[in-house]
Design a protein around this nucleic acid. Sequence first.
DNA 1: TATCTTAATTGATATAGGTCAATAGGATTG
DNA 2: CAATCCTATTGACCTATATCAATTAAGATA
Lengths: 172, 172
Amino acid sequence: MQLFRSVLNEVAVSKGQFLLKPGTVVKHEYFVVKGCLKAYYQDAKGNRHIIQFAIENWWIGDFDAFLNQIPSKLYIEAIEDAELLSIHYDNLQKIYNEAPIFNRYFRILTTKAFIAQQKRILSTLEKNTKDRYIEFCTSYPNIELRVANYDIANYLGVTPENLSRVRKTFKG
Amino acid sequence: MQLFRSVLNEVAVSKGQFLLKPGTVVKHEYFVVKGCLKAYYQDAKGNRHIIQFAIENWWIGDFDAFLNQIPSKLYIEAIEDAELLSIHYDNLQKIYNEAPIFNRYFRILTTKAFIAQQKRILSTLEKNTKDRYIEFCTSYPNIELRVANYDIANYLGVTPENLSRVRKTFKG
DNA sequence: TATCTTAATTGATATAGGTCAATAGGATTG
DNA sequence: CAATCCTATTGACCTATATCAATTAAGATA
């Protein structure tokens, strides 16, 4: 645990700042101590698709680019001023070698993230926009107060206009 | 590696047979040696939603139910006669303890599965049905010859009718 | 081969959601 | 306070996909 702490670095970003932009070879993953961030992909048409929101106690990064040490395709941007802990790729490899138990920690972490994503996929397959919005709000409590409407729409895969209309149907 | 082999069991299932049904506490995960299977969720309306196809060299299981040792919500069904290797939950825990390096193996395996799912989510957010069908066929080569049309539709989250029409638009 | 069963296709229509344009709030800045 | 800039909402219309029903095709079984 001391070893782990020794390789974590404190990072502060303010709202609107980027932790990562496409094309960068990704050297860090980030743990959110405070604040809120989004990871998104911008396609050829300029549409943004939110892969992940990260709030307190979540990890965020481009796991594909990080694992395979290839250039990223994602943006990671702070939606609120945020405090993070970062871990460098080389240090993480060092930790895996020196304290293999961390493989277990990250194995379980990754499995949980995998399961969460699977739920998201199922939700998309099964439910309509309204129900997915409600599910989203309950699984990320109070997130709708911290995140712009259009970002939630981009997460759910609908337009902001449609989400706005959908929200009207169950507010009073 | 010998330890690993010693806890794997050979399982054969024929087309149409189930490896898993909802309500079961999941004791096994499966590695596909030969054949093809599907994992799906059936919702309250009776609609089926395919979470995963598994072909040769893939792992399949209900990872949520397995990790947390809770009753499954999924069906896993063979769509071809299949040969599998199964590993029992208790044996996997034993392996993690006796040969912690397996944490590393499964950490990387899970990370790759996570990344594959992330691509599926992105694909759903970005692309229309036609492009997703094409992407599906290229990422699971020749799968369209092994899997029923309605199963592919259930994987993509569209109706079989619609998928049928979409396919017409680029065949000659 | 004839029959039965299941899957795929086609047609007609309905609906959810997208697109584009306009307007209205809120917040921020000079 | 006014001006500006975003964001959210609303309206009118359009498109992709769903739904339901009928038909055809393909596979399995006797």
